[in-house]
Amino acid sequence: MLELFAAATPNGYKISIALAELDLPYQLRLLDLKKNEQKQPWFLAINPNGRIPALVDHDHDDFAVFESGAILIYLAEKTGKLLPREPKARSQTLQWLMFQMAGIGPMQGQAHHFRHYAPQRVPYGIERYTKETARLYGVLNERLGRSKYLGCNELTIADIAVWPWIASHARAGQDLNQFPALKRWHDELAMRPAFQKGRQMLAAR
């Protein structure tokens, strides 16, 4: 049995969507981030960084995996799905996964912070991270103008990693109508039953 520790955030949605796409049973444990439950000693034993999500595979000696990208790779390799075996397609998928981990997530996360959570309004921070998020959206838009999916010609963990962030585009000050190929991709994935189920699993709690 898999046990997922998560919350209703883009990084949490990545894993609940992947588990739904893979049709894997799991036990969900939602953490209350406002109460800093993710900083409690019991959770730090699972993820020393004290962030969600984390996954424990109880069928493999209670093996713990943290960092959302690492969890996606673990699940893909465990099942043989959502990560191509052909070397070039596999590499492209991992490249776009890392693009999310190193670019979209950190930059859009900062845009969210300065636009909604900073105790004082900081115009420089708002402008910098909103513009950088828009630039990264442009990179995605260019890729998706040439490819149906990010990694290759089929759905992969790269798409699952990026989509929850694009789904929260408005909070980062972005208009998807300015990125037509990205909007096409976003809207198509939003209609997939597993994407809907994955979001509902966290958002409805």
Rank of each mutant, 00 (worst) to 15 (best):
Q27Y: 09
A194N: 06
T9S: 10
S168N: 14
Q27F: 09
Y149M: 13
D187Y: 05
E188Y: 08
T133L: 13
G109C: 11
Y129S: 02
R143E: 01
P119C: 12
E67Y: 14
E188N: 09
F5Q: 02
E67S: 04
T9M: 04
N11P: 05
R90P: 05
L136G: 01
K81W: 05
Q178E: 10
K88C: 08
W163C: 06
A203N: 11
H58P: 00
L2I: 05
R121T: 15
T130M: 04
G173H: 07
K88Y: 13
G173K: 08
F66W: 13
R192F: 01
D59A: 09
L136Y: 00
L182T: 05
V122I: 15
A54D: 00
A204Q: 15
V162Q: 04
M1V: 14
Q178K: 13
Q120Y: 13
I17K: 03
E132G: 06
V139M: 07
P87G: 08
D23M: 10
Q200F: 11
H169D: 09
F5P: 00
M107V: 15
P193D: 12
L30A: 09
A172S: 10
R171Q: 12
E142T: 10
A158E: 07
A6P: 06
R121S: 15
T156R: 10
D187V: 09
N177C: 13
I17R: 01
D62M: 09
E67V: 07
T79G: 03
L75E: 05
M107D: 11
D57P: 00
G173D: 06
F114Y: 13
G138I: 02
G145C: 03
V162Y: 04
A102C: 14
A70R: 05
A172I: 07
T9K: 07
R171F: 08
L30I: 14
M107S: 10
V162T: 15
M98R: 11
D159E: 08
P193W: 15
E154P: 01
A8S: 15
A64Y: 03
W185Y: 07
A102Y: 07
Y137D: 04
A172F: 05
G105E: 15
H112V: 12
G50N: 02
E67C: 06
A172P: 03
K148F: 02
L44D: 01
I73K: 02
